[in-house]
Computed example of a mutant assay.
Amino acid sequence: MMRDAADFDPASSRVTRPAFWSALPERWTSDVEETLVCCHVRQETHEVKSFFFRSPQGRSFSFQPGQFITLELEIDGDTINRCYTISSSPARPHTMSISVKRTPGGKVSNWLHENLQPGTSVRVLGPAGDFTCARHPAHKYLFLSAGSGITPLMSMSRAHHDLVEDRDIVFVHSARTPDDIIFARELDLIAANQTNFRTSFVCERVGARTNWPGITGFLTLPLLKLIAPDFMEREIFTCGPAPYMKAVRDMLDEAGFDRKQYHEESFSFETLIENEPEAAAEVLEAEGKVGASHANSASERMQTFSVTFSRSNRSVECASSQHVLDAARQAGVRLPSSCTQGMCGTCKVKLVSGQVDMKHNGGIRQREIDQGMVLLCCSKPLSDLVVDK
């Protein structure tokens, strides 16, 4: 019988059983195990890599397809938090992956591509996020993505495939060239295995692949009607750069699509902030820049308030001039965050009681504010607070 070298312990000269063979592995949470280990790196395209993680204690991962995790990285002496959508399927719970596009000038994406190798430990928070088909069950879906915005929709597609949920899914992905299509072969395999799963790739140009038989150009309403004639009946999930998502929204509004069946996720904020300032401006304009404030700035006084995190039973002190996220970090409370500028919505939480002065930059919608949600990175306390976290 051949032995797997990965399961062989040279010190004891015996084969050890992998942790994932345990009958009922304990569920991983960042509260009980904050560090994961990279166990594999896979090159997806010339500028995209997938990084796979495993729990050192053999715990299993539980998340909803489309959710994200937050990496806490030490780069050049700075602690940087960056969010990445989970690209793997929750039906394969012993590993979890993210797929990252190398962005020119992007501090984090370049560090990951150059430094994150099997065996590297990374501090992780999450999973979190509301962009998931698990919360919007439907018989028919339409997935629309562009660039590395494909990752949450890939997680959803993998989940349906692994669970043999042959839902009626049309997946339309836009890329610069055929060589830039992420997960192209796997999407073709899923389509071959599932009767009701169909893919369509739209490439801006053919690039080096001059024999490309697919669609070239951009996604338009007439093209969408050809690809998915019944799109008006489908639950639509969209992810990509801000200009792409705005074009999709305008296209669907022109068709009279019911926005209650429409869901979208923001693109990588590393890309938006560092490399696409115009796109970032579009996000701010699209989502609204009006801050939510429960008191006049004139009423601000130098006071100290208590902030209680109800789930973890932790309390910290926060000055009235200080953002809640900063106070929590100084006290050692680990909270998901990314842009720290009120743009991305990663630090969004439910405010159980108390009032804050929140000045955001589009990372939260008015209906969410009306429901008591706040962004901790841009909220200063006006009273003692209780946060559902």
Score class of each variant (00 low, 15 high):
Ile273Asp: 07
Val206Thr: 12
Val202Asn: 04
Pro222Ala: 00
Tyr262Leu: 13
Phe269Leu: 01
Ala327His: 06
Val316Ala: 09
Leu221Cys: 12
Glu278His: 11
Glu204Phe: 03
Phe257Pro: 09
Thr210Cys: 11
Pro277Tyr: 03
Thr195Phe: 11
Tyr262Val: 00
Phe201Lys: 00
Ser299Lys: 05
Ser297His: 10
Leu226Gln: 14
Ala228Gly: 08
Ile273Thr: 03
Ser293Ala: 11
Phe218Thr: 05
Ala295Phe: 04
Ser320Tyr: 06
Glu278Phe: 10
Glu233Asp: 15
Phe218Tyr: 13
Thr304Gln: 13
Glu235Val: 08
Glu276Ala: 11
Ser315Leu: 05
Pro241Cys: 05
Leu284Cys: 12
Ala327Leu: 05
Leu219Asn: 04
Asn196Met: 10
Asp258Val: 03
Thr304Lys: 12
Ser200Trp: 02
Phe257Asn: 03
Lys260Tyr: 07
Ser268Cys: 15
Val307Leu: 02
Leu272Gln: 10
Glu282Leu: 15
Lys246Cys: 04
Ala279Pro: 10
Val248Cys: 02
Ser266Asn: 10
Ala192Tyr: 12
Met302Tyr: 12
Val206Cys: 08
Gly291Tyr: 02
Glu233Ala: 09
Thr210His: 14
Ala280Glu: 09
Gly291Ser: 08
Ser310Ile: 11
Ala327Ser: 14
Leu325Met: 15
Asp230Lys: 11
Pro213Asn: 07
Asn196Glu: 13
Glu285Val: 10
Glu300Thr: 01
Ile236Ala: 05
Phe231Lys: 05
Glu233Cys: 05
Ser268Tyr: 07
Glu264Arg: 03
Gly214Lys: 01
Tyr244His: 05
Leu221Val: 07
Val290Pro: 06
Ser320Asn: 08
Leu252His: 00
Ser268Lys: 03
Ala295Asp: 11
Met251Ala: 00
Ala247Tyr: 01
Tyr262Lys: 00
